[in-house]
């Protein structure tokens, strides 16, 4: 129990500290890397709640894929970040402070004694070692929630189409290799034998 608490505190502090660094970091690439660290800490927290599938998917999808794209983009953009930071400090910091204050007030309001019945604090049930929550998730996701799954599929399709139509401009005269045409070529298309 003691170790669990210790690990929880470590992850929680890492999460908050790196989240703060994301906002106040020196360079966008560093901010993005701190965001990666924040995702890691969040995955650790989910693992403590024994949600192993979700924790690993968080690492796989967010750390492994989404943040890679972020880094790709941030690393290759040449924007004057100092300038951006100036306007950021002027406009967005006050807005952020107001939002955070609102959120903290809400959290206090909900968890205060007056509303203790809203969240029933159930002690966490430790699952047996052979319990696989991936299986439990799979059991319902593709049957009970099949419709939601299809909606997700449509969203992904829309994203694919949008990404391609935004990025691909020059369809016509690309000089790429077309293997099927190369294979299909016959000698008589290329060589003309002239009788001398």
């Amino acid at each position: 129990m003691l170790i669990e608490n210790l690990i929880f505190i470590t992850f929680a502090v890492t999460l908050i500290a790196s989240a703060v660094m994301v906002v106040f970091g020196q360079h966008p690439v560093r901010c993005a890397l701190f965001l990666v660290l924040a995702f890691f800490a969040a995955a650790g927290l989910w693992l403590i709640l024994e949600a192993e599938f979700l924790a690993l998917v968080l690492i796989l999808v967010y750390v492994g894929a989404v943040m890679t794209l972020f880094l790709f983009v941030i690393m290759t953009l040449s924007i004057d970040f100092e300038k951006m930071k100036q306007s950021f400090l002027r406009y967005y910091v006050p807005l952020g402070v107001i939002l955070v204050c609102g959120l903290v007030t809400l959290m206090f309001y909900i968890t205060s004694h007056a509303h203790a019945d809203l969240i029933k604090l159930i002690p966490m049930q430790h699952v047996p070692a052979d319990y696989s929550n991936t299986k439990a998730l799979g059991g319902v996701l593709y049957t009970t929630y099949a419709f939601a799954l299809e909606v997700a599929g449509v969203l992904l399709l829309a994203a694919i189409v949008a990404a391609i139509s935004l990025c691909v401009r020059d369809v016509v005269d690309s000089k790429s290799q077309r293997v099927d045409e190369q294979i299909a070529i016959q000698p008589k298309d290329r060589i003309k034998i002239v009788k001398m």
Partner: peptide
């Protein structure tokens, strides 16, 4: 001996790209 062993392996191998990107940048 975790229940999500293969998923863990997949997640770990997806992290390999960070070392490359960070080193290059």
């Amino acid at each position: 001996n975790i229940n999500a062993g293969l998923l863990y392996l997949f997640a770990m191998s997806s992290l390999g790209v960070y070392g490359i990107l960070v080193a290059g940048w």
